[in-house]
Structure formats: C-alpha cells, structure tokens
C-alpha cells in the first residue's frame, strides 16, 4: 500500500489444518492465499458464511493463530513472536454476549483489566469509558449476569477501548443481539470510531450489518477472498456473483 500506511496487512496468507489419524490425515485449507489490508482509521468489513474462513482470518489477524504460509504485518512490521509486544495496541470484541465478560468479575474490573495487564494506572478511566459507551457509573460495581446482552456488549467495547488501541477486531459482535439493539451497538461503534480514530476489522455473516459500519468490504468464500470493494458497491452492484447472492438475500 502506498500513501497511508496500513495498520494490518495479511499478505498471501494460507492456513492449513490437519485432522484425522496419522495415516489418513486430512488437510483442510481454512484460508487460501488471502491478502487483506486495513488502512489507518478505516473499517474493513469481512462477510462470509460459516466455514468460509472468516473466523480463522480473525484469529490470524489477532495473532492467535500462526499462518501456515504468507506474512502478517502490524503497523508495517512483521507480527512479533510474543503477543505481549502488541499488548494494548490491539483489542477485540467477540461474539457471545453471554460469555464476553468473566462472570466472577465486576464490570469495572473487567473494563480495567487491559490496563492492569499493562501495569498502567486506572484512575477515572473506567467511569469515563463506561460513559462513552452509554452506561452509568453505577454499572462498574455490577456483575455480568445483572446486565442485558446489549449492555454486556457495551462493556466489551469499553474494555476494548480503554487502552486506546490502534486496531480493534469486531468478530460477530452484534450477531446474537435483537435487531433494534444491533443498531444501537452499530451506531456506538461508528461514533466511537469517529472520536478515537481506531482502525477496525468488522467480521459478520450479515451483509446488512457489515455494510452499515464498514468503509470497504471483503467477501470470503471457501477460504478465499472473492471480492473486495468500497461499501457503496454493495448497495448497488457487486461484481462477483456470490456477492450479488448475499445482497439479494437481504
């Protein structure tokens, strides 16, 4: 990429899983020659069905899985071998609102955790972050089971933002919520991005949700990226036939 430097680049990434007994080992390609890049301040949407490889892509982008082939670069440099070197610069908001927060920790402790990991002072940041995601100060002392699904995802977002990361992965972050709550959370993500300027990878099977928050959209199918285009294209006429199917299904 020229001009603005990409925060995250996947360059020709392939991930192969092996399964089965030693002599009849099956090889599955979860990702095949996938190249993606997320520019600074940009939201890249990633759409695909289950089994399309988008979950693996998310794990590779977060450094939770090492690719079999290809290169991953964060902020222009190869991914460090030790995750800790990126601590605080990269965060995630994940799928299950029910399990996104540790049930044994108060909301405030959960939000403060990324700071504690870095050994940074917490100060008033928890209250401030809760305020930013539209939750009152009193939520800090509650336990997750006292919160609704939408409120828990708000807390997850506060936790992800507390270290002011450069990059956040939203992996099916709204899929399990009621439709009207989905819009509330999607609006929140848009507003916070304007304020904080983080880059994001927004992964979902729902083209409607992806289209609503992303600047560019990549479509995955069977481990390959079949189309990458500006979001506007996905309101009118995507090029690939499979993308058109996704659009028609809305």
């Amino acid at each position: 990429m020229t001009g603005t430097r990409a925060i995250l680049e996947l360059d020709d990434v392939t991930v192969t899983f092996t399964a089965g007994p030693p002599l009849r080992r099956i090889r599955l390609n979860a990702m095949m020659h996938v190249s993606l890049s997320v520019a600074r301040g940009e939201t890249l949407g990633l759409v695909g069905e289950s089994g399309s490889g988008k979950t693996t892509t998310s794990r590779v982008a977060l450094g939770l899985h090492r690719p079999t082939g290809g290169a991953v670069r964060f902020d222009g440099r190869p991914f460090p071998r030790r995750r800790r070197e990126l601590a605080g610069r990269m965060q995630a908001v994940l799928q299950h609102p029910h399990w996104s927060l540790n049930p044994r920790m108060r909301v405030g402790q959960s939000v403060a955790e990324p700071l504690a990991v870095l050994g940074r002072p917490v100060g008033d940041l928890v209250t401030e972050m809760l305020g930013h995601v539209g939750l009152e100060e009193s939520f800090a002392t509650r336990y997750p089971h006292e919160l609704s699904g939408g409120q828990r995802q708000r807390v997850s977002i506060a936790r992800a933002l507390v270290t002011r990361p450069d990059f956040i992965v939203f992996d099916e972050a709204v899929s399990a919520l009621d439709v009207s709550v989905q819009v509330q959370i999607l609006n929140l993500i848009r507003d916070l991005q304007e304020e904080y300027g983080f880059s994001a990878l927004f992964i979902s099977h729902d083209l409607g949700a992806v289209r609503y928050v992303a600047d560019r959209i990549a479509v995955m199918r069977a481990g390959e990226v079949v189309e990458t285009a500006d979001t506007a294209t996905f309101y009118t006429a995507p090029a690939h036939e499979y993308s058109r199917q996704l659009l028609e299904a809305l």
Binding site: V179, Q182, V183, N187, L207, Y212, A232, L250
Partner: peptide
C-alpha cells in the same frame, strides 16, 4: 420502529435511529 431498525434497511450513508 422494528421494521425501520434492521441495519439492512438503511440506505448508504444513512443513520438509523433505534
């Protein structure tokens, strides 16, 4: 409100108000 709150219902660049 329910019919208007699906993300897919939004036009490009529009903002839904749930």
């Amino acid at each position: 409100a329910l019919a208007g709150s699906a993300p897919a219902a939004a036009a490009h660049g529009a903002r839904l108000e749930p």
